[in-house]
Amino acid sequence: MRRLFRARYAAPAALVGCVAIVGLIAFSPSATLADAAPTTTLPVLTTTATTTTPIAQPTQSVSGALNYAAPSNQTGLFYAQLPQAFIAPGEALFAANCASCHGPAALGTGRAPNLQGLGAGTVDFWVSTGRMPLANSSVQATRKPPRFNRLQTLEIAAWVQSLTPGQGTQVPIVNTNNADLEAGNALFTLNCAACHTITGAGDALPGGAYAPSLHLATPVQAVEAIRSGPGNMPHFSVGNITNTEARDIAAYVDGVIQHQDNRGGFGLGGIGPVGEGFVALLIGVGALMLVCFWIGDRT
């Protein structure tokens, strides 16, 4: 047995090991970050929503994302009127969790901005992506598992919206079923790739900020971000990106960016030649140098 570990076998063994690891990674079912995404609590919303409002019948799309069957709506995107019944519990949740920084009337304090007029969609984006409540005072709020479930989030959003009815970004209902992926691709490349990168991996921005990865964004969050421009992101109004176009971008993010066609093998993080260079030099040239080391004289 000890003979197996003699130096002369070490190099080929290491090579086979490297290859095996790469192989395992490449063949493993695509374990994207999306698997770690917190599941939204659909049933709660279903019961509440259907009893109180005439709007949407929630359905499960293939990808498991939250979608509504939009009534007689060809663009696949419209904005929900949140139920009146959400407002009261939303006020209680806001008072308990948000008011300490944003003030009891959401008018903002020295520590946090005024939320009035931003609209339910803006609130939904920040809370549903876990960015609010803030974990620490870094330059930029980071995405984390949300504190509140889907219903609670919409309740808070409904209360903030009720302070300034009709203003700001609304919570969208996105039906990506008939979306135009080609249009979404073109729009994403022109409007989003300059910051979020063409693969949606995200990258650092000047000033300590960064464009976040899009690999966890739901279609609803994508549209909310497009419309409300969180943080350093520009605001894209309907005159800039139409509802249909926003739907197509959301569909492209949900369907293509988050389920990249990596049929060439392991995607190497989608960060382009930086990752490729490391693989070429460390695994490629490195493995071949090990082979040289095995074949050749080592004195």
């Binding site: 790469v22 990674i25 490449a26 060439g264 093998g265 392991f266 995607g267 989608g270 693989v279």
Partner: peptide, 13 residues
């Protein structure tokens, strides 16, 4: 092995 297991330059993306 790299050519089929490690994706390089996915131009379609």
């Amino acid at each position: 092995l790299l050519g089929g297991l490690a994706q390089i330059n996915p131009i379609w993306q």
